[in-house]
């Protein structure tokens, strides 16, 4: 446990110090929230929620910020590889599993904090709290998204030589995961041939879970969402740990 804590602590220290990164990764979700939210609020009709697109969008943007921060945190291992710091960790008498778990929890924590910041900003913008327990539910789903996608980032980073492939991963994996997740639009309004695809996107369950917590309404049963996303988090952590064990430096 102490080793996992050590690695976690380092991630958190680095995160708190990188002011520009914090602000940078808040700005995009915030733009989405303000421009899409206010811009489309009176235009879009959401089934079951009426004309309140911004309430619908907030959970989507929160998941977006957790998703992007966590993938990025995971992939940062490549920097450690390039700056040589990874060797210092790998030559110590600790297991690679502990290192990987510490990294995952560290990345998930920072992603979680980013999500909470967006949530607080959303409160100012107009998020209505339906019931306080809902927040805890949303927090749970945010944590699961954070763990899954930090582990995903670590898995990718373990196989990548340098940051060159990063843009490729963002464009062909992370953006589609975000786009298909129903973060910006209700899944049920998609054409019937595309809707099933969104059900293969793990983030869909995260978005739906957070949406259930914050608004009390969701299209997928939150228990189902929790089970699917939980299973995905476990699967990603195991895959990440497996690939990290074989990391080359």
């Amino acid at each position: 446990m102490d080793i996992i804590y050590t690695i976690w602590l380092r991630s958190i220290k680095r995160y708190i110090r990188s002011k520009s990164r914090i602000i940078g990764s808040i700005s995009m979700p915030l733009f989405f929230l303000i421009f899409l939210g206010f811009g489309l609020n009176s235009v879009v009709q959401i089934p079951g929620m009426g004309q309140d697109y911004i309430q619908f969008l907030i959970p989507g943007v929160v998941s977006m910020s957790v998703l992007f921060t966590s993938v990025f945190s995971g992939i940062q291992i490549i920097w450690d590889k390039q700056f040589g710091f990874l060797k210092e960790t790998l030559v110590a008498p600790v297991s690679r599993l502990e290192i990987m778990l510490g990294q995952t929890l560290g990345g998930a924590t920072t992603a979680f904090i980013q999500g909470v910041i967006i949530m607080l900003l959303a409160l100012i913008i107009g998020l209505q709290i339906t019931n306080p327990v809902g927040f805890l539910i949303a927090f749970g789903f945010m944590a699961l998204i954070g763990i899954s996608f930090t582990a995903f980032g670590i898995a990718i980073a373990s196989r990548m030589e340098d940051m060159h492939g990063f843009q490729l991963i963002m464009n062909f994996v992370v953006f589609p995961i975000f786009g298909l997740s129903g973060a910006l639009f209700p899944i049920s309004s998609l054409p019937s041939w595309i809707a099933p695809i969104t059900l293969f996107d793990p983030l869909t369950y995260g978005v739906e879970g957070i949406r259930y917590g914050l608004t009390g309404v969701s299209q997928i049963n939150p228990v189902v969402s929790f089970i699917v996303l939980g299973a995905f988090a476990v699967f990603m952590t195991i895959s990440g740990a497996y690939l990290f064990r074989k990391i080359r430096f």
Binding site: K13, R17, F85, E88, V91
Partner: peptide, 17 residues
């Protein structure tokens, strides 16, 4: 690993710490 110390040829510090 427990009984050795090592200074690598290339730098291995965390510059943000």
């Amino acid at each position: 690993r427990k009984s050795i110390g090592i200074v690598f040829q290339d730098q291995s510090l965390d510059e943000e710490l």
